[in-house]
């Protein structure tokens, strides 16, 4: 068997476009799911009974349904319910975001609950309001503490974008599939794709680890 990597070089532009879509999708999903998840996490800890119950149900639901199913449902079924057609990219964005946000909620909750009550009392003694205590004391420490978990969330999000290929979002996985089929060189194309994903994911997780090590002391009260 001879390996021939030339189709990859010949179609580098095609693959590079896919990579760009992967990166865009991953960044958007990370930002949106972190924002949504942190808000949800605050609601999960400080909300009233109804809000807490709803958020818990939402989190557990997302923990039990595959992201593939969410993606497919939002792309194919949601338009039939809502009457709006979302393009594949935004369907994938929406699906991955609501899926990953559930995990961010859980992480944020765990982070907030790990802060000792003494910290809150100390802030109250200074006369801070609830909102100030949350923003100035609790959240910063909590988020630093859960940074390693956030790192794995980022990694999961990037990996989940590859599943968007099933609804033909032209990201790197989809482009590789297309190229593999057209060039009749699936081995080279998929092996190269592994290399590409590894080169994105490995440094990203390492970077977040390093960031955590530098910041960890700020979260230790």
């Amino acid at each position: 068997m001879e390996l021939d990597f030339s189709p990859i070089f010949e179609s580098w532009r095609f693959l590079a476009n896919g990579l760009l879509v992967t990166v865009q999708l991953a960044i958007l999903c990370c930002i949106a799911s972190l924002a949504l998840g942190i808000l949800g996490g605050i609601g999960r800890v400080y909300g009233g009974r109804v809000l807490k119950g709803t958020i818990t149900f939402y989190v557990d639901t997302m923990r039990s349904i595959p992201v593939l199913v969410v993606i497919v449902w939002i792309y194919f079924a949601l338009p039939l319910v809502s009457g709006y057609n979302l393009p594949p990219f935004w369907s994938a964005f929406l699906a991955i975001t609501i899926h990953v946000a559930a995990y961010v909620i859980e992480i944020t909750r765990a982070g907030i609950e790990s802060i000792r009550p003494g910290q809150v009392r100390a802030a109250q003694a200074l006369g801070m309001s609830h909102r100030q205590i949350l923003r100035e004391v609790v959240l910063p420490q909590a988020l630093i503490r859960v940074l390693p978990s956030i790192g794995s969330i980022v990694s999961v999000t990037i990996k989940d974008t590859a599943i968007a290929s099933v609804i033909a979002v032209p990201e790197y996985m989809k482009q590789s599939e297309t190229l593999a089929a057209q060039s009749f060189h699936p081995i080279e194309v998929f092996t190269f794709a592994m290399f590409v994903y590894f080169c994105i994911l490995f440094p990203t997780t390492r970077l977040i680890d390093r960031l955590y090590r530098r910041l960890a002391h700020l979260g230790q009260s």
Partner: peptide
């Protein structure tokens, strides 16, 4: 461990499907 933790599973599935038989 580092390899398979840093590659999307769906890609591993395709890879196993096309590459393993060969």
């Amino acid at each position: 461990v580092e390899l398979f933790r840093n590659i999307p599973l769906i890609l591993v599935v395709y890879w196993a499907f096309y590459v393993m038989p060969i």
